[in-house]
């Protein structure tokens, strides 16, 4: 609707060229401003805003794909909190997120500092090598790592056997599955985060370090008192992105553990559980409740992250 109105108004001002001079610039800016941003808002309303609220609505119903829908109030949520599978999925999601994100961001920062060394030769090549894993699809990453972590013929178990260790059943245990999935996440994202940090490092004015050197600050002091505070916004950015991504992890566990998340449900994450409830068992009501709880968890995490990362600055 709003597009049509905008177009008509636009036509009017074109049709009367003499008056064009007298149409105030602010009026024209208002019309074209809203016209130009309208595609985003129209499509986002239909495929973004409406579904979010409708998910909340569905979550109060027993809603099979066919057949009668029945209003059940908060029963889906009550069921969720007493559902051991939900808690298992939450635990798995959290465990994979911790194992993958925390070491990853530390290593990415170290890698960025190394890539930023002035004497380094072949900078372009090393940056490219660091970034390359990020272009592969999650499905491809999962398939490759599946081969690497295979129990019988996987290269990793072969490497273990070279050191005289027994082959490990990566797919059959919580620990093995979480490590395998976390390593997929790390492999795909560490270089990406390092490049983001590198950009932030390069934007730090050189004279800050020169002044600090003259004042007698050591390299370590400079790192913690200049580098870290200066790239804080980028650290916050990567922490938020990794959290949102980590809470939504789906493709890797689905590919690695298969339907249901494996015999122990060791690969079942929240989004995986949501997917199975909705599109395998067709219980839309229950799946919608999972979706909303997942959303609230992400918000809660973002707030906690904000709180923790805001302490970086107050530390200096």
């Amino acid at each position: 609707m709003s597009t049509n109105v905008g177009v008509e108004k636009g036509k009017q001002s074109l049709a009367v060229p003499k008056q064009k001079r007298f149409t105030k610039q602010s009026t024209k800016d208002n019309i074209s401003g809203y016209l130009y941003i309208s595609p985003f808002f129209i499509l986002f309303s239909i495929f973004g805003v409406f579904p979010i609220f409708y998910t909340a609505y569905i979550s109060f119903f027993k809603w099979p794909i066919l057949g009668a829908k029945e209003f059940v109030g908060i029963q889906n949520y009550q069921m969720l909190f007493t559902d051991p599978t939900f808690w298992k999925a939450l635990g798995n999601t959290f465990s994979i997120w911790v194992i993958s994100t925390i070491p990853q961001l530390f290593l990415a920062l170290i890698l960025a500092v190394i890539l930023n060394q002035a004497f380094l030769k072949g900078k372009q090549f090393f940056r490219l090598a660091a970034f390359l894993p990020n272009i592969t699809s999650l499905v491809a990453v999962a398939i490759i790592f599946d081969a690497i972590f295979g129990e019988k013929y996987g290269i990793l178990n072969y490497a273990l056997s070279v050191f005289g260790l027994d082959p490990f059943n990566w797919k059959g245990s919580y620990f093995g599955t979480h490590i395998a999935i976390a390593s997929m996440v790390m492999w795909r994202w560490m270089g990406y985060n390092a490049i983001i940090y590198l950009a932030a490092l390069q934007s730090i004015p050189k004279d800050l370090y020169e002044a600090a050197t003259i004042d007698g600050a050591s390299k370590t002091q400079q790192f913690f008192k200049i580098t870290i505070p200066m790239i804080r916004p980028m650290i916050i950015f990567t922490v938020i992105l990794s959290t949102i991504g980590g809470m939504q992890i789906f493709t890797e566990p689905l590919m690695f553990s298969g339907g249901g998340g494996g015999p122990l449900k060791q690969g079942l994450t929240l989004t995986f559980y949501l997917y199975e409830e909705a599109f395998v068992r067709n219980s839309f009501g229950y799946a919608s409740a999972i979706a909303w709880v997942l959303f609230l968890i992400i918000i809660l995490f973002s707030i906690v992250n904000q709180f923790i990362t805001s302490r970086i600055k107050s530390a200096d």
């Binding site: 409708y54 998910t55 909705a278």
Partner: peptide, 10 residues
């Protein structure tokens, strides 16, 4: 900030 999965059912 809104996760894509949130509205997947509708």
């Amino acid at each position: 900030m809104v996760p894509a999965q949130l509205g997947i059912i509708p």
